[in-house]
Amino acid sequence: MSGNGNAAATAEENSPKMRVIRVGTRKSQLARIQTDSVVATLKASYPGLQFEIIAMSTTGDKILDTALSKIGEKSLFTKELEHALEKNEVDLVVHSLKDLPTVLPPGFTIGAICKRENPHDAVVFHPKFVGKTLETLPEKSVVGTSSLRRAAQLQRKFPHLEFRSIRGNLNTRLRKLDEQQEFSAIILATAGLQRMGWHNRVGQILHPEECMYAVGQGALGVEVRAKDQDILDLVGVLHDPETLLRCIAERAFLRHLEGGCSVPVAVHTAMKDGQLYLTGGVWSLDGSDSIQETMQATIHVPAQHEDGPEDDPQLVGITARNIPRGPQLAAQNLGISLANLLLSKGAKNILDVARQLNDAH
């Protein structure tokens, strides 16, 4: 009898209710805020589980004197976190989706994509230029951005401005803007500013005609071990179906173009009346040469937790077992079709030249 009692006690200790789920994140304040929001949602869904947040620095956090596009290494903000995932030191990792490459290392998958916040870019102005827009900034004003995508589009749109690289986390960039006289304004992701509670610093939100956004911008991705079915089931509740389908289309477009950090590629997606609209573009580094096109596809946005595919093969690095396969494939095909259209119009040449120029500098 006593033996059975011990077995029952052991089973209770090993039951999922007692389990601590370890969540990996970057150390920056924004990353911690984003991770806290994901953990809060998981806690609400699984009140019996405990969650421990483990923060670590990544290569991208450490190399702050070089433009991201020049470092010449993929997975700048993800490699150390993936290493911890691989060694079973954490069970899942919360990322900004735009930091996750469209091809993940073997053994990993994006197990959830959370509801997207505003994906557009924002302009934050130096205190002396508050009330201005990019259009009304004085001639030769210097605007800071760490992104080739932003610089290429904005140089084309605002030729009277000069664009220079600015690195560091959000706090560091804002301090550089406010305390030094080098920059009249800087460009940042609206979602990051909003998550930090800095709505009052948003001086201008850039519309798609001015600057399309990065693939996955404004959404959070939760990376897990691809074979860890328990954790895949656990994080599945975080999937937002519309965000998922938009981001599958965007990531398929980028992957098929073979774009990345070192080339200016941008997108804009919208879901309306059962249609998914995808606009994508590529630019030369100075913005003088560009190709942009829009395509659409009829896609039914499923309700969360309709029964999805059981075999769960990944699409552009994403596993969404609780979302039907048909809409996911339709979104992926839309991204591939748009990429093929741009490639047929000469996108590869623009991107190759951009890559060579970026590598040469």
Rank of each mutant, 00 (worst) to 15 (best):
Q34C: 06
I323C: 11
I187D: 00
I166P: 00
L85F: 04
R175C: 11
D312W: 06
K348W: 14
R246F: 06
E162C: 15
Q155F: 11
P313N: 08
R164T: 12
L85H: 01
K157V: 10
D230P: 11
R150V: 05
W198M: 15
I187S: 06
R150P: 04
I205K: 14
V20M: 11
E209A: 03
S146T: 08
G308P: 05
F125S: 04
A360C: 00
D65R: 13
P313G: 11
P309C: 04
T145P: 01
T133V: 08
E82H: 03
L276A: 04
R156F: 05
T136M: 13
I54K: 12
R150N: 00
L351W: 05
I299S: 07
A347F: 03
T58C: 12
E135M: 14
Q356K: 11
R201K: 09
V267I: 01
L234W: 11
L148Q: 11
L92A: 10
E73F: 06
F163I: 13
L334W: 08
L193A: 00
T109A: 06
K27M: 11
M196L: 12
I323M: 05
L154V: 10
D121M: 02
N169K: 11
D121F: 01
P119Y: 08
G259H: 00
A55E: 15
D65M: 03
R195I: 15
K74V: 04
G236Y: 00
T269I: 00
M56G: 06
T78W: 04
I110N: 04
E162L: 13
L188N: 06
R156L: 10
T66E: 14
F129Y: 14
S45L: 08
E242I: 02
L193M: 14
D36S: 12
D99F: 02
P208Q: 10
V38T: 12
V39M: 07
E293N: 08
F77W: 10
R225Q: 07
G335Y: 00
L68Y: 10
L220Q: 01
S37A: 14
Q34Y: 03
L343F: 10
N340K: 13
S290Y: 12
N118Q: 09
I113V: 02
E73I: 07
V38W: 02
G259F: 11
R156K: 12
A67Q: 08
G131L: 08
S165P: 13
D289Y: 11
L232P: 04
G48C: 11
T136G: 09
G48E: 12
G216D: 00
L170D: 02
L343C: 06
I21Q: 00
N171A: 10
L174A: 06
Q29E: 07
P101Q: 09
L334V: 15
G280C: 01
V23A: 15
P106G: 09
I71C: 09
S290H: 00
I187P: 01
D289V: 13
T298V: 13
F253C: 04
R149F: 07
L341C: 06
Y277E: 03
L64A: 15
L206P: 05
A249R: 01
L315W: 10
S262A: 15
K27R: 15
R116N: 04
V222M: 08
N340C: 01
R175M: 13
T243C: 01
L245S: 01
G216E: 00
D91E: 14
L232E: 04
A84D: 08
G131I: 04
G287F: 05
S141T: 09
D273R: 14
L285F: 13
D230Y: 06
I71Q: 15
L81T: 10
